[in-house]
């Protein structure tokens, strides 16, 4: 693995104004971590722990209140256009454009990158085929099942050949069998193309299946536990990590770090 980190969070804090206008609340609190090229990092935490805020910071959709965040040395918020074609996002729901067929949805990112239509269609067709959607290229989203739609959205993110993939609980709305297939497919695709991925989830098993490394967040988004995963690890070793994660998650209280666990 390369030694130079690709993504760097340094003491990043994000505060939002309260809806009633009285003060602010901290969604991300002095968050620091690094991600190396080719790594898949699973971010795990309870609902409302700030995972999505961290995700939006990474995507460049919101700006940190303080601290420094850089991806390949560039600020994703201030240098928003620099990351055109470099970051692919798979969202929690498929977010397919209903007026575009499956292939046209996959072509979207390439169209924005000014790739010629014929070339874009070839790329889109290839990705749809890799994700088992051959024969459905011209189907509209409403004619596809939930799993198929999510596959299209994965194809859309991969088609632009981004360096970094950000995934926000992309399989949470799917049935377990479909989700399991897609998880395996996702890891295979990321590893094959040597991409870097940040995968947000609130399922321990999913984090353990997908991540090379797991970051467990406590409110407000700060790392309470970190574990490196060995894909060849035996059941006992995995069980130990799972128990530790469970213990950390069970005591997610503001300003508290799980006692007796490595952090």
């Amino acid at each position: 693995m390369a030694s130079e980190p690709l993504i760097r969070f340094r003491e990043v804090t994000k505060e939002f104004s309260r809806p009633d206008g009285k003060g602010t609340f901290v969604a991300v609190n002095r968050l620091s971590f690094e991600i190396e090229k080719g790594e898949i990092v699973a971010v795990l935490g309870k609902t409302g722990c700030g995972k999505s805020t961290m995700f939006n910071l990474l995507a460049g959709l919101i700006e940190p209140t303080s601290g420094m965040l850089d991806i390949t040395g560039h600020d994703p918020f201030k240098e928003f256009d620099f990351f055109r074609g470099k970051i692919g996002i798979v969202f929690q729901n498929d977010r397919l454009m209903p007026w575009r067929s499956a292939i046209d949805n996959v072509v979207l990112g390439l169209e924005i990158l000014d790739v010629k239509r014929e070339q874009a269609e070839v790329v889109a067709q290839r990705w749809l085929a890799r994700l088992g959607l051959s024969g459905h290229e011209h189907d509209y989203p409403h004619a596809l099942s939930g799993g198929m739609r999510q596959r299209v959205s994965i194809a859309r993110a991969f088609a632009v050949e981004p360096e970094i993939l950000l995934c926000d609980e992309p399989f949470s709305s799917l049935d377990e069998m479909t989700a399991r297939d897609l998880r395996a497919e996702f890891v295979r695709l990321v590893k094959q193309s040597n991409k870097t991925a940040v995968f947000i989830t609130h399922h321990i098993n999913e984090a353990m299946e997908i991540g090379d490394r797991i970051l467990v967040f406590h409110r407000p988004a700060r790392i309470a536990f970190e574990a490196r995963m060995d894909r060849e690890a035996g059941a006992e070793q995995r069980k130990t990590i799972e128990d530790k994660i469970l213990k950390v998650l069970s005591i997610d209280m503001p300003a508290a770090i799980a006692p007796g666990v490595e952090s």
């Binding site: 055109r84 074609g85 692919g88 729901n93 454009m97 169209e111 924005i112």
Partner: peptide
């Protein structure tokens, strides 16, 4: 809002955003 954020994730120019999202 979901489709807007999804489209913005590809960092389109103003014209592209207009063509691929706003018009449809």
């Amino acid at each position: 809002k979901d489709l807007f954020e999804m489209t913005m994730s590809f960092r389109p120019s103003g014209w592209k955003l207009f063509r691929v999202l706003i018009v449809p």
